[in-house]
């Protein structure tokens, strides 16, 4: 049995008095690609921010295993947090060059001599020719690839991806999915992928969770989730008959 990386227990998250997420129990296992599916506003991004330890839940606990001990938002040290990296749906890049953006995470870790690593990751995301370009000259797809590159260069133990291909053309979607697949296969990185695309989850996930209206409806290995869903709402969501 795989080692558990995250344990989410009795979690509720509220914003302005409104409960946006309720998860009685969820585990993320070492080396898996867990895809979190659900319609817009289901609480997928909220779950990802909790897993990134960027915010604490209003109730319950999100625990992350560092390899040595369990930590939470309140107890995690900087080095613990640095095992986790997140790519946001709308990446905000620094108003500098592509290379400077990709180098950022390494520099905050005090790794000054990381030119070779930055160059290698830029080649992986096919942005090596744009290394010196200012980010304002990039297309949406290129900007998203910079966001992915600045996460991949850190070689994180856990990679959290919040709809990394939303609003991108098929070529960019294909490229980003290939990068995610390679990262998982080559480094065994634990990946939590938030998406609203059933097809993307099918292509990438080893396990799938469905969130609807802040509630965790079903979690299952990908083949079972898609071929033999246990919950009627999952069935409706997969068949496109889900009514908001």
């Amino acid at each position: 049995m795989s080692e558990t990386v995250y344990e989410v227990r009795d979690v509720q998250q509220t914003y302005g008095g409104r409960t946006v997420l309720r998860i009685p129990h969820l585990e993320v296992r070492q080396g898996e690609v867990l895809s979190v599916l659900g319609p817009s506003g289901a609480g997928k991004s909220t779950l990802l921010r909790l897993l990134a330890l960027l915010e604490a839940p209003a109730r319950g606990q999100v625990r992350f295993h560092t390899g040595a001990r369990w930590v939470t938002h309140d107890t995690a040290a900087v080095d613990d947090r640095r095992q986790i990296t997140m790519v946001f749906q709308r990446p905000v890049l620094l108003s500098r060059s592509v290379q400077a953006n990709v180098r950022y995470g390494l520099r905050v870790r005090g790794e000054r001599d990381a030119h070779a690593r930055v160059e290698a990751v830029l080649r992986r995301v096919s942005l090596d020719r744009l290394a010196q370009a200012h980010v304002r000259t990039l297309s949406g797809g290129e900007a998203q690839r910079v966001a992915l590159a600045r996460a991949l260069v850190l070689e994180p133990r856990v990679l959290l991806l919040d709809e990394p291909t939303a609003n991108l053309d098929p070529a960019n979607v294909g490229l980003i999915e290939t990068l995610i697949r390679e990262q998982h296969a080559q480094s065994g990185t634990t990946i939590v992928l938030v998406t609203h695309s059933i097809f993307q989850a099918r292509r990438l996930a080893t396990r799938v969770a469905l969130l609807i209206d802040g509630e965790l409806v079903e979690v299952a290995p990908a083949p079972r989730f898609f071929d033999a869903p246990q919950d009627a709402r999952t069935e409706a969501f997969l068949s496109g008959e889900f009514v908001f």
Binding site: A52, R81, R82, I84, T85, Y104, V108, A151
Partner: peptide, 8 residues
């Protein structure tokens, strides 16, 4: 938050 997520 994005800088924090990158380890800042």
């Amino acid at each position: 938050p994005q800088m924090h997520a990158l380890g800042a």
